[in-house]
């Protein structure tokens, strides 16, 4: 049977949620259209994780143990994925559209001479009638993605090359429920050691900031950006307190040292979906927007009427946050 493969990205304590989401999606597509779901796991001492992938829906897991150095060596990951895929010949190969996945997938595509679609928000299986050759292709992967900074959607296919590779945005599909009775095959691949690739790129230091704040479960988030300045964050914290919410921040505010990293929302921070998201002094760069656009209600306060954040907001207030916030806080305090 044809196969759908998912690259299993590692998180601190196991397979990252973004990859489990893709295993879940692959499982759904497989059950509907008749595929086998496989997963590729690269790193060191990973058997427990492989079992976990099977419990979440994989039929087979391919492990490449490249020694301790292989957890962070992406050149090794690219090599290992390409070798396993060459041998196993899946029809479809999915990566999470994380910083890691978006680096790895295009590399693997070059190694295998195939196409890759970035940052999909949906993957479906369908029939493709090729206008060029007049041929009909069955069970083709439709890769749907935003482009032009999110203003245009595109449906893309890879009809003649295999595998069809796509990276899929985290947080689109749910993490499937775990079934500990599920069984599957685990295969270990003897593919070199990551040491060889070390001479090109050596990892000197890895800094991961532990998250103390969990924005994911917050019902209300008030976020500040570069426009807020340290003084503005005092107001932002006060508003968050009045509303019983958490404080978030843009990368610019985190880089400036006004807020710790675990408050960052966006591509390189957290993805959040609160009931209410209030963006204060944030311009609305696409890397910020991908982290908050699925909030139920979005409110933006910005003194630039052209700021892109207004395009994704339900309510926009054009004004100086240093004037608007105190008023808003005062009114909200009064209404309680």
């Amino acid at each position: 049977m044809d196969k759908i493969f998912v690259y299993a990205e590692a998180a601190e304590e196991g397979v990252a949620d973004c990859s489990l989401e893709l295993v879940g999606r692959a499982r759904a597509l497989a059950d509907q259209h008749g595929f086998v779901v496989g997963s590729i796991l690269i790193g060191h001492e990973l058997r427990n994780w492989a079992t976990e992938l099977i419990h979440y829906g994989a039929d087979e897991v391919h492990i490449v143990d490249g020694g301790p150095a292989s957890t962070t060596n992406m050149l090794f990951h690219a090599k290992a994925v390409a070798e396993v895929v060459k041998a196993e010949a899946p029809e479809i190969l999915l990566f999470p559209a994380t910083i890691t996945g978006r680096d790895l997938a295009p590399r693997v595509a070059v190694r295998l001479g195939t196409g890759v679609t970035a940052d999909c928000t949906s993957v479906e299986i369908g029939t493709y009638d090729d206008p060029l050759t007049g041929k009909r292709y069955e069970k083709i992967l439709y890769q749907i993605r935003p482009t032009f900074g999110g203003t245009v959607m595109a449906a893309i296919v890879t009809p003649y090359h295999r595998p069809q590779i796509a990276t899929v945005r985290p947080g689109i599909y749910p993490v499937p429920s775990k079934d500990e009775t599920r069984t599957g095959q685990i295969k270990e691949w003897p593919i070199g050691r990551a040491e060889e690739e070390k001479s090109c790129i050596e990892v000197l230091e890895v800094k991961r900031e532990k998250r103390k704040v969990d924005l994911k479960s917050a019902r209300i988030i008030v976020s500040g950006g570069r426009g807020a300045k340290p003084e503005g964050f005092k107001l932002i914290k006060e508003l968050a307190e009045v509303l019983g919410g958490e404080v978030g921040a843009s990368r610019a505010a985190v880089d400036a040292g006004w807020m710790p990293y675990d408050h960052q929302v966006g591509l390189s921070g957290q993805t959040v979906k609160p009931d209410v998201y209030i963006a204060v002094g944030i311009s609305g760069a696409i890397q910020h927007v991908v982290g908050m656009k699925d909030s139920k209600l979005i409110i933006a306060i910005n003194n630039d009427p052209e700021a892109p954040i207004f395009k994704v907001a339900d309510y926009g207030l054009v004004g100086d946050l240093f004037v608007v916030l105190p008023k808003l806080i005062e009114r909200l305090k009064r209404t309680c």
């Binding site: 196409g115 679609t117 493709y128 439709y142 935003p146 245009v152 449906a155 893309i156 395009k311 907001a313």
Partner: peptide, 25 residues
């Protein structure tokens, strides 16, 4: 090119998009 764009369309904005501006805060 291995990939083909089948179709493109303007992304739907489901937001209310009510922008309020008033000089007086």
């Amino acid at each position: 090119s291995p990939t083909r764009v089948v179709r493109m369309w303007a992304a739907e904005v489901k937001r209310k998009g009510k922008v309020i501006s008033d000089q007086d805060p």
